[in-house]
Write a protein that binds this DNA or RNA. Structure first.
Lengths: 353, 353
DNA sequence: CTGAAAGCGCTTACAG
DNA sequence: CTGAAAGCGCTTACAG
């Protein structure tokens, strides 16, 4: 047998130096009970001095420890396929860390049904999970669950939207205000002076409406700060079926000659559909999210710009953050804002969401 | 002792099924010589049937094998800090895989000196490396080196620019044509009709000029295809010092009232400097690359748009591709085009290059 | 061409 | 509170 790598120190060497057995070294290494303060201190000191780094391969090979993560996000619905991407990211991460003894169990809820959220949360609560990723869409229900997890000391990651002021491990998602602000700048480029912009919010009552308001706030603030002469009008459409949206749009577009329409969420495809059907021309259309429908209208030139926030990466990084925190004990940034990507028909092919 | 995980099969089980020792199983698993065709076939069949997946932790723990990768990219110079980012990506990847027994050695060359490229290449050639990443900037010199590597069967990754038609593992970098095409669309948005655009190529003779031409081609083709009335003018500036650039710009800008200036590479900061010094206003400025200087002028509103191609990720993915290919034997996509990112002063803070 | 044994650096029961 | 031994699933020499 060859001699082992010169540089590397292991439990054996530490044990020798401390005059104990490797079992005892292992106990302090893994913070297990049953070591006298005195020997513990002695071993800790040696570990420090040697800057001991455990061999992760040996650790994994020998360990029988398993961790279980739960994820709670909206189910993919007919209304929107947005959540396919985060789910895909979650599965990608799960696949990457499964060899490290981590199991990821996915739970879902219906975006139009607060109860379904609470139901799934309850299932997670009794499931004895070691880490949880969630999209905290419904504020009240989320907070109840957050407090439960805090009590049980289970680390919690938020993706896509944040509930600030709680003791979560981290938030991974967009800076909504800034993405609205950016959209406004694009609008400003498209129509420097004296133009008319229509802001369209399409969302049911139950949706997290304050989401959209935050984007709108950024959008409006840009124009205020830049003393723009653009005229901003806004409509709220609170039913999401096409006939309804069509009616509302048609009424609104009669009232004025708009140059730009800015849709504050992924439902921009519905507006695009209207534009196409009614041969609306000369109005620039901007909206959100890398969804198949939206890309379709981006390609056929009905939509001009899509603002995207790497939904897949949100899921991926969310799960990986739990892993880094729990397994590798790495420091996790509390607020992780995603890039704000500007997608056009020239670069969507290369967008690795 | 607990029983081992039910599902998992290992060399032991395979050996038992094949009526051989685990040593023999290991030999066929790792394609080593000294196994009769007959037993080899038998073992291979069992491995297939069981869909055996080796335990990577046990493998790493037991193995003494080391791999060495070489990287060859331009050194960071006063002229441009662009290559800091790919180098950073390379180091990040190196750090991630060093526990897997992989050493990454970095070599550099001077972008203004073909000989320095060949010198470093020679050093790599005698260094017995198992995989190589390079930026094949100088065509002739690169090809000589490529052929040498092909002969020695050393896998080769290109980043940042491609030399098509050679037997490299993959290319990771921008689609230059498309990024020029995208820029043109932005220009078109900014100035729909009857405007004047100046294309600026700033590069020394020795630089890979065809790079810039490819972008320019995409840029021009956009306008041709869209029957635009925009007037395109172009200047080539072949010395890269500020006084010279200043002179050239000043001469050119006297000749016409330009609305847009499009700089085909990262030297857009120099043009921005000129704009700032001479209080040039009302001209939109577009250029390339997420460099400190460029960001400075983006922030102070001299530069309007920067087109970026994740240089750091190019280095990172380049090294990881060698690793995936050589260690995990994964299929590697031959052409990996980077996203074409549009950066403004609203989203640069979130750009994770 | 093949097998048996030692070892990689940890963790896990078990005994005391 | 501590130690000694077995074992995780591979690879590595060595012997035949």
């Amino acid at each position: 047998m060859e001699k082992k790598n010169s540089g590397t120190v292991g439990v054996k060497e530490i044990a020798r130096l401390a005059n104990v057995s490797i079992g005892t070294v292992d106990r302090v290494l893994n913070n297990r009970v049953g070591v006298s303060e005195k020997t513990k201190a002695k071993i800790l000191k040696i570990i420090q001095e040697l800057d001991y780094q455990p061999n992760i391969f040996a650790r994994r090979l020998a360990s029988k420890k398993k961790l279980r993560f739960a994820t709670l996000i909206p189910q993919v619905s007919d209304e929107t396929t947005y959540w396919e991407a985060p789910l895909h990211g979650i599965k990608q991460a799960a696949n990457e860390i499964k060899d490290f003894g981590i199991e990821v169990v996915t739970f879902f809820f219906d975006q139009n049904n607060k109860e379904s959220f609470s139901d799934s949360a309850s299932k997670i609560a009794v499931g004895e999970f070691d880490g949880i990723l969630m999209a905290p869409m419904f504020e009240e229900e989320s907070i109840a669950f957050i407090e439960l997890c805090n009590h049980k000391k289970i680390p919690l990651v938020f993706i896509n939207s944040d509930i600030p002021g709680y003791n979560n491990l981290c938030y991974i998602g967009p800076n909504l205000y800034q993405s609205g602000y950016l959209s406004a700048h694009i609008v400003h480029y498209l129509s420097p002076v004296d133009k008319k912009t229509l802001i369209v919010n399409i969302s049911k009552e139950i949706d997290l409406h304050h989401h959209l308001l935050r984007k709108e706030e950024g959008f409006r603030n840009y124009f205020e700060q830049h003393g723009s002469t653009n005229k901003l009008t806004k409509i709220d459409i609170r039913q999401t079926d096409y006939p309804h949206i069509k009616q509302k749009l048609s009424d609104q577009l009669k009232q004025d000659d708009y140059n730009i329409v800015f849709v504050t969420n992924s439902r921009v495809a519905t507006v695009a559909k209207y534009f196409e059907e009614h041969k609306v021309e000369g109005i620039k259309l901007i909206g959100y999210d890398f969804l198949e429908d939206n890309i379709h209208y981006l390609r056929n030139k009905t939509i001009d710009f899509l603002i995207c926030q790497k939904p897949q990466e949100q899921g991926y990084r969310g799960v990986m953050s739990l892993y880094y925190h729990l397994v590798l004990n790495t420091h996790i940034e509390k607020e992780q804002f995603m890039p704000i990507d500007i997608i056009t028909r020239e670069n969507y092919q290369y967008y690795s969401n």
